[in-house]
Design a protein around this nucleic acid. Structure first.
Ligand SMILES: [Mn+2]
Ligand SMILES: [Mn+2]
Ligand SMILES: [Zn+2]
Ligand SMILES: [Zn+2]
Lengths: 144, 144
DNA sequence: TTGCAATTGAATATCGTTTTCAATTGGCCG
DNA sequence: CGGCCAATTGAAAACGATATTCAATTGCAA
């Protein structure tokens, strides 16, 4: 990792090491605050801006991407070889991923048709996840 | 329009009338600030918060939807019968629409598979529009 | 070891969004 | 036609996530 960062023009530091490690441990779709909480538990001296900056670094070196869902909080998603879409539960904010191989060619073609140079594709389905639907049903039952 | 608003529990006011009219005149993908500028030209007394609130009203009554592209500015898009996706130029912020009939069934199916109750579908392609590519090329030529 | 750019933490700035509050007004009812 | 009251308005302030500033520290190449 240190070597990898060097090729990208970044130094390794203890703070960066902990932040990177924590990010990759936490799995997908992490917000600055969530990562800060985790990192801060392990090292109370690490500041919020350092966590924020290092998430940007993780993106700059191509290991993650920002995900914006319009709820005012940017999440950071590990980059995987497989492009995917997101099901976003408006209630619990959970993100469920799904494969988009089937539709990607169509989107690529659409971009080409309009002479658009596409950098990235985003597919999001907003709604209510299975669990939150169940909770909603229970709540409605109680009203009878 | 006044009657329509009444059925939704809203009153008509001169400010609202002007804001609604201006919004529909401006076409698609309007930000609060853009609409405020336009409205403010016609009536210097109308405040920013009134414009903001009325855009929310336009959404509440189902005539528009918020569009979030991760650039920190919410845009308001007239609701049309036809679902569509967006090509978003990162340089000039222009939005180009495209039809998504072909991929919608796949997304609906995906939601069902995961027992997800889908409210809305969002498809965005980020990149550089034709004009901005041309500008970029010109700039690069000049460097030789 | 030295020099210097990169990094860090705290504080502060930014900026679009949202709320507060007092004053005004639309529209229903008598 | 008034009177009433909830809805609406405009200005100002609050919010909150993101981003920057700055002085101090540190990684690391030479
Ligand atoms: Mn993801
Ligand atoms: Mn649109
Ligand atoms: Zn949920
Ligand atoms: Zn452009």
């Amino acid at each position: 990792m240190k070597e990898f960062l060097k090729t990208k023009g970044f130094k390794m530091t203890p703070q960066r090491e902990l932040i990177f490690r924590s990010f990759f441990e936490m799995g997908k779709h992490v917000s600055v605050e969530e990562l800060y909480d985790k990192v801060h538990q392990k090292d109370r001296s690490i500041g919020y801006s350092t966590v924020w900056r290092n998430l940007k670094v993780i993106c700059k070196v191509g290991l993650a991407e920002e995900v914006n869902l319009g709820d005012g909080v940017t999440r950071y998603d590990r980059v995987t070889r497989e492009p995917h879409g997101h099901l976003f539960c408006q209630n619990c904010k959970r993100l469920i991923e799904f494969d988009i191989h089937a539709v990607l060619p169509y989107l690529v073609e659409t971009g080409e048709e309009k002479n658009f140079r596409a950098d990235s594709f985003k597919i999001e389905i907003t709604g209510l996840c299975e669990d939150c639907q169940a909770m909603e049903n229970k709540k409605n039952e109680r009203l009878h």
